[in-house]
């Protein structure tokens, strides 16, 4: 009941929605960099939307399935193939025992997510399966995948209800320039008006220093009133930290829980799908929105995912294409739950 890692790729880790509730103890949240892609992958294979997935970075892994399983791949397109045949992303499909999934090269975005029907069999640590490499906890032995790792499935499904219906158009496109929405704060008052104008008016380029902790950007200097140091406070996912040198850093999943640099603004949740897929050379312009607009966008995104879940398992699909007989349907549902 497992998958064997033939080649781990550049950086492949087990991640879920993150380790919530332990930031006050200094434990980073971790979790996926592109939460929307994780949720869609899980919905497509019938999982809880926050089930643990594999996050694959730029160069994907090579995985041999030792058990039949239904999977879905979302996020950036890393060129997935199954036994040499290319497979669609943003679609659930069946993998037979003995087949090998590999990735031929990055086409769009930066990170792909593989969801496995029924979930991966790695232990919960402090309520989460997310890998937190710095503290060596979660995922597979608290580290990125290595060759010959074997990861079990909790409840694999060889088939799944309404498989053909579980497909949407890929969402990560081949763009390299993005508008990213932010709400200003918490320390926007420690920048000069000119500094705020620079931040909101200029284009910033992702440097090659981008990882799961943060994304360092190059561009015009953002002017502080009195330097970029503050008394340390908490850091949210998407916080844009600007140290005294004036270059922004977007703080991401493996960020420290606290930090002593000014944070000019925070990326809105609905745009995590963009910042989770940034890579070196991508260009970003920041656009200010109100907190009301940001929360409205977040709720709209949630509704879209709820609609997707309804569609993926809908009676509509059964009526139109009754591929599952009553007896088998029950069995399939049992496997998928």
């Amino acid at each position: 009941m497992s998958v064997t890692v033939l080649n781990p790729g550049l950086l492949t880790t087990v991640q879920d929605a993150g380790r919530v509730g332990y930031q006050q103890f200094g434990v980073s949240v971790s979790g996926v960099m592109d939460p929307r892609a994780m949720r869609i992958a899980n919905i497509l294979v019938g999982n809880d939307e926050n089930e643990a997935v594999l996050e694959c970075t730029m160069l994907g892994p090579q995985l041999r399935f030792d058990k039949a399983e239904v999977i879905a791949i979302t996020g950036g397109d890393l060129g997935a193939t199954l036994d040499g045949q290319s497979v669609a992303t943003y679609a659930a499909f069946s993998v037979r025992e003995g087949q090998t999934l590999r990735f031929t090269g990055l086409r769009t975005g930066c990170r792909a997510y593989i969801a496995f029907a029924g979930g991966l069999d790695v232990p919960l640590v402090m309520g989460s399966r997310s890998t937190y490499m710095k503290a060596k906890i979660g995922g597979v032995a608290g580290r990125k995948l290595e060759k010959d790792d074997v990861i079990g499935f909790r409840k694999p499904a060889a088939e799944i209800l309404n498989l053909v219906q579980r497909r949407i158009a890929p969402e990560v496109t081949a763009r390299t320039e993005y508008a990213v929405r932010v709400v200003m704060g918490p320390q926007d008052d420690l920048f000069t008006p000119a500094g705020i104008d620079t931040f909101l008016g200029e284009t910033y380029t992702v440097t090659n220093e981008f990882d799961r902790m943060g994304c360092r950007m190059e561009g015009p200097v953002i002017e502080h009133k009195n330097g970029g140091d503050i008394i340390s406070d908490g850091i949210a996912f998407g916080a844009i930290q600007v140290p005294t040198a004036g270059k922004p850093i977007i703080m991401l999943a493996d960020r420290q829980t606290t930090g002593g640099y000014t944070k000019i603004a925070t990326v809105i949740t609905a745009d995590f799908r963009i910042i989770g897929q940034l890579k070196g050379g991508d260009k970003v312009r920041f656009a200010r929105v109100s907190i009301e607009e940001a929360q409205e966008a977040l709720l709209t995104e949630r509704e879209a995912l709820t609609a997707l879940r309804t569609m993926a398992g809908s009676a509509y699909a059964k009526e139109r294409r009754p591929v599952v007989r009553p007896g088998r349907k029950e069995a399939a549902e049992k496997k998928g739950d």
């Binding site: 919530v20 509730g21 930031q23 006050q24 008394i231 340390s232 406070d233 908490g234 949210a236 829980t257 606290t258 907190i291 009301e292 929360q295 977040l298 709720l299 949630r302």
Partner: peptide
């Protein structure tokens, strides 16, 4: 959802689907 007290502030994580900022 989660409270993170620091030197001089307390960060409050919440679900806007349950309660808005205002």
């Amino acid at each position: 959802v989660e409270l993170v007290p620091t030197y001089r502030a307390c960060m409050i994580h919440y679900d806007p689907g349950v309660i808005s900022y205002r």
